[in-house]
Structures are given as C-alpha cells and as structure tokens.
C-alpha cells in the first residue's frame, strides 16, 4: 500500500527525477547461502549452495561444491545423501515426503555444519480460479481502454483453509512453465478455517498457459519468504536478512511444502 501510494505520488510529481549515485558501502565476509526445496510433486529434493558477494562485485556467484548434503526422515532416522550435478545443485530425484512427518537437512561444507528441520504440511486443493482482466502494470485496476492493460490480469485462487490450525500459503504462478518473479503469500489469520480468496497478479501473458501452484508451507518458511519479499523489494521499514531456519549462521531456507496446481488458458479479452 505504502509503495503504491509513493509511486503514485512520484507519477503525479512532474519534477521527480532519478539518477545513479556513488555510495561507499562496507564489505562483508562471504556467507553460505542454502536453498533447499522438497515437495510432494515427485520432483524430489533439490539443494543449491552459493556464497554472498560484496555489493560492488559483479554477480555470477560460484556454486559451492564438495558439500555433504543429507536428508533425514526423523520418524525412522532414514538418511539419504544428495548427489551433486556438475557445477550445479545437489539432488535426490523421485523422493516423496510423507504428510505430517518431520524432515531434516544436514549440510557439512568447508568444515562447518548446518541443519534445518520442518514438518510436511497437508495438501490443500485449489477449488477454483476466477479471472479479473484489465489491470495496470502496478497491479492496480487499469483503464480497459488502454491496450497495454489487456494483457494483465488478477487471478483469484479459491481454496478451503483447514480449521483448527494456523495455515500459511504461497501461490506461485507459472507462465508457459516459467515461474513469475512475484511472491504471493497468504495466511489464515483473518479468516481461520474459512474459504480463502487469494489474489495473484499476472503480467503480459500472451494468450498463454498459466499454472498456479498452491504451496502449503509452515510458519518459519512463511516468515522467511515474507522477509525475502520485502528485502528484494526494498520496501521494509527495517531492512534485514530474512531469518533462516538453518542453524550455523547460513542464509537461505529449507522449504518443505505440499504442492497442488490449477491450469488455465488465458485469452486476451476484448475491450468491453
């Protein structure tokens, strides 16, 4: 909301101007960044290890190789070691976690040990999706007469929230199988146990195939992603590093989630 208002203000103010400036920023010691994903889609476990770089450095963060990455099912202490693809992620294909059970990742890298645990949430099916066309690039209702707005839409995903517990969700949109950058995060703090309506904004689809994935996640991952969102968007009043569920001072997260999808074919609407 704040950002929307500020951008409108900037739009309205004809005198606003932007320019690149030099800022002398401190450097920081490189830290390990862990992205660890596991869901029930059959894709299996996927872990990518990288390191942070200084602000002034160019990107191209080196993939960290040679780590020992182990997935543990805590119920029976079954341990599976992930294999690294050449200069890429560590994987454990076809692994399917059991709903309601606890899992842990243990990573040993350059003599340091990192660990994260999570419980596998229950799958929540998407009941239906409603399409609302004609949105401006900022996600605000746009002028239908403007052809540019014809290719933006707001989708509303409807799903039933399980009662009795607090639930957290992420909706990921894919346009022609490519994930969109925006993070859509919802919880049931307001409408606990009720039918949820979660808006998802898609931009410049060209008569494309849209897939919505509903990720049922836990509180720690929800918080991590919320912080990640404000960090990336630089919209926080208190910019900070998202708090990782990994111990040992690593950045990044272990996201264990139940994944359900809905498919849509979007057609460019005619102006009403």
């Amino acid at each position: 909301m704040k950002r929307i208002l500020i951008s409108i203000l900037l739009l309205g103010s004809l005198t606003a101007c932007e320019k690149e400036i030099d800022i002398d920023l401190n450097s920081a010691d490189p830290k390990l960044v862990i992205e660890a994903l596991l869901d029930d889609s059959g894709r299996g476990a996927w872990v990518k290890l990288t390191k942070t770089v200084n602000f002034s450095d160019t990107f191209g963060p080196p993939i960290q190789s040679g780590a020992i990455v182990v997935l543990i099912r805590l119920a029976d202490n079954r341990r599976d070691t992930l294999q690294q693809l050449p200069d890429s992620a560590y994987i454990l294909p076809n692994y399917v976690p059991v709903y309601g059970e606890q899992y842990a990742f243990e990573i040993t890298h350059q003599g340091d040990f990192y660990r994260a645990t999570a419980r596998m949430p229950q799958p929540i099916p998407i009941d239906s999706v409603v399409i609302d066309p004609f949105f401006g690039p900022g996600g605000l209702p746009g002028n239908p007469a403007d052809p540019a707005n014809r290719r933006n839409a707001l989708l509303y995903a409807f799903y039933q929230d399980p009662p009795g517990v607090r639930n957290y969700f992420q909706i990921q949109a894919f346009q022609n199988d490519t994930a969109t950058a925006n993070l859509f995060l919802y919880n049931d703090e307001v409408n606990t146990g009720g039918f949820q309506v979660s808006p998802v904004f898609v931009q410049t689809y060209i008569n494309g195939r849209i897939r919505l994935e509903l990720h049922h996640i836990d509180a720690a991952v929800f918080r991590y992603l919320t912080n990640l969102n404000t960090n990336i968007g630089q919209s926080s009043a208190s910019p900070a590093n998202p708090i990782s569920n990994f111990s040992g001072g690593a950045l990044g997260y272990f996201k264990l989630f139940a994944n359900t999808s809905a498919f849509l074919q979007l057609v460019e609407p005619t102006t009403p």
Partner: peptide
C-alpha cells in the same frame, strides 16, 4: 539508513545482505 553490505541470489532474484541497522547516511 540501512544499506546493504553485500548481495546473493535466491530463486534467481537478487537478495541484499545487511550487516547493521541504520549504519549509513543519506547524502
């Protein structure tokens, strides 16, 4: 203000690394 000291990638997006609160100054 709080400015980043470094950066990293998560899901192919740039994430900022912060080290201290309000450690910098606007011009």
């Amino acid at each position: 203000v709080t400015f980043p000291a470094g950066k990293y990638n998560i899901a192919d997006q740039v994430v900022w690394l912060y080290t201290e609160r309000n450690g910098y100054r606007m011009p």
